[in-house]
Design a binder for these strands. Sequence first.
DNA 1: TTCTAAGCGAGACGGTACGTCCGGTCTTAGG
DNA 2: CCTAAGACCGGACGTACCGTCTCGCTTAGAA
Lengths: 199, 199, 199, 199
Amino acid sequence: MSELRKPDPARRSERSRHAILEAARALIGEVGYGKVSIEAIAARAGVGKQTIYRWWPSKGAVVFESILALSQDPQGEELALPDTGDIEADLKLVMRATAAEFADPAFEAPIRALTSEIINDPELAAQYRERLAGPLDEAKKARLRAAQEAGQLAADADLDLVLDVLYSPLHRRWLHRSGPLTPEYADALVDVTLRAFRP
Amino acid sequence: MSELRKPDPARRSERSRHAILEAARALIGEVGYGKVSIEAIAARAGVGKQTIYRWWPSKGAVVFESILALSQDPQGEELALPDTGDIEADLKLVMRATAAEFADPAFEAPIRALTSEIINDPELAAQYRERLAGPLDEAKKARLRAAQEAGQLAADADLDLVLDVLYSPLHRRWLHRSGPLTPEYADALVDVTLRAFRP
Amino acid sequence: MSELRKPDPARRSERSRHAILEAARALIGEVGYGKVSIEAIAARAGVGKQTIYRWWPSKGAVVFESILALSQDPQGEELALPDTGDIEADLKLVMRATAAEFADPAFEAPIRALTSEIINDPELAAQYRERLAGPLDEAKKARLRAAQEAGQLAADADLDLVLDVLYSPLHRRWLHRSGPLTPEYADALVDVTLRAFRP
Amino acid sequence: MSELRKPDPARRSERSRHAILEAARALIGEVGYGKVSIEAIAARAGVGKQTIYRWWPSKGAVVFESILALSQDPQGEELALPDTGDIEADLKLVMRATAAEFADPAFEAPIRALTSEIINDPELAAQYRERLAGPLDEAKKARLRAAQEAGQLAADADLDLVLDVLYSPLHRRWLHRSGPLTPEYADALVDVTLRAFRP
DNA sequence: TTCTAAGCGAGACGGTACGTCCGGTCTTAGG
DNA sequence: CCTAAGACCGGACGTACCGTCTCGCTTAGAA
């Protein structure tokens, strides 16, 4: 009966799109993800609710994109890990930075919001892996490959597994708040990983 | 102004308490955590809404407790991991079982629901660690200590860290759906861990 | 703090408005005024509760308007009392009809409901006087003026007082159920009134 | 199934009974009749809800009795209207007093509450006539009978009708707030009545 | 350059669920 | 066995949002 009309992206208002994502981002920080409502986003953005429903399938999708936008701002940038030749030092630097980022309250709310979405929505999880985690993992694996070539890492090591061992404990400890994310813990994870995968 | 009245636990209806937890558990399986409402739980349990609000602070708390109850049913039981003397074989057995459990659709919904709650509510996270994860971790560490005494594991290994390395990757892969939870993956995690922490 | 939003009457749904008033009217007859709930009105009218709260300040106001609508249906009609030239006969006719109407069970429920509202809400009382009682009183006073001109009533009689004396006893007897509303009683009130105000 | 148990009035706590009526009376004045709840009465009276339900059938009955008690306090007193021999002067005195009483804000709330109850509950209406209005009417009729014997009133006048004509307009004007209750209005009603029923 | 069809802000609509209040019943302890 | 206390089931309250639906109004591309 009701013809399913698809909106024309060419006519989309960039102004509205940006205001919506910005409003979503701000509200997550102010009231917490769970209490953000589409109505509030629309009101804050000075936008009709329909404009949100026209372009996003769910609140999760809006929130997700608003956080993605946050992390992707420097779009042209080429992601790359430091490479001093010393894999241990480089990894510890990166891991300590990651631990510090997780501990930063400003990142806390959006990342937890993002994770909530991902857990319960396989579609968003796929987008997350493709658009955020994927590129980051590639950059990390590039550095690991360099270490393999330098004989600092087993040549036959499964790099996905290496990344899992390296990052998962940190991520889980943060998610479950099961312990503090200290630089020492970051270092310990690097040590463990290198010990497990040394040539 | 408003006197905070505390209900008297001595008068609490065990019948209602049980019906509520059971209804919550059933509804999570049927409609998914996100769509479970307090109204529906109350209706299903044949209980007034106030009886829920009187004893639990939020939907999350009800759901949380209903899942805890599920996992704690055999209360008197002594948790213990198998101990054949071969730490590698024992761990692989346990890890494969854990992977299989995560993959079981019947466990999927409640565990994801539980995790959603934990992420966003530090109070529930603490309860989770204390009542569910803690006892399990103790059992696991007991087995690891035996391995240390048998010279199969470094005597100075930080057992919390060992558990992190062993379980976190599995947990994260499941949470993010970033890869299949195969027996091979379970085995690989055991191998990596033992390699990292061998004497 | 909370910006008081005013709905735009131009966008009001006439369909909903009518369904609500009709549902209210029907429910009063079926379950009695005291047991009518806004929920029930909304459900019966196929309308969201908010649509009622948007346009009416209270249950009383809805009920009130639904009864007003009932009495005002023939809107274009010109209210006028019979005028045969014989004020006594005309008044007795009208008073007997009024007494019969009060005794009719179908009118009983809504009029008592209306009266309940009016007693406790000065605002509704004012609306009642303006929209229902006022026009009726004007019609009655027109007939009384004709009687004055015909020399059947004292020329200096206060017509409001005449109406009070004529109608109040009937109204009160009905309200308090302090006696039957017989045609004889109606006649007696006319006789008393004419005796008190004869030229 | 559940045997309908009748409480034993002999064991009734006079202390509780009095506290309940007093609490009801106070609450009517403070929050208005419509917002008085049985819970609030019980709490205020320091009484269990069951104690109210045991002895009264409804909120209306409690409120009703609390107001009756108020008006009956001087129980032994013999009600009697003044009798100076001048019926006009005596009635005007009484009517002016009545009008003043209605206008007194302290009487306003309870009387309106009482009237609300009476309108919708025939049983309470009967009690009201029997316990409050009846005795008062008898006292008034006694004075009117004296006037008849003194030749100031038609000997065949129906005294109930006389009272109706005298009091109903005042009562109705107050109930509907359709005009001020001035001494002049009170006087006018006496004049009208005496004119209608003079010998 | 005008017409027209889309996106837009706004917000009313039918609904669902919220968290609270209270009605009326039932249970427990104390006197 | 009455009472104070209060937990219980149920149901209505008034509010917040959901996702859909019209309204006029820009606004940009086709006529």
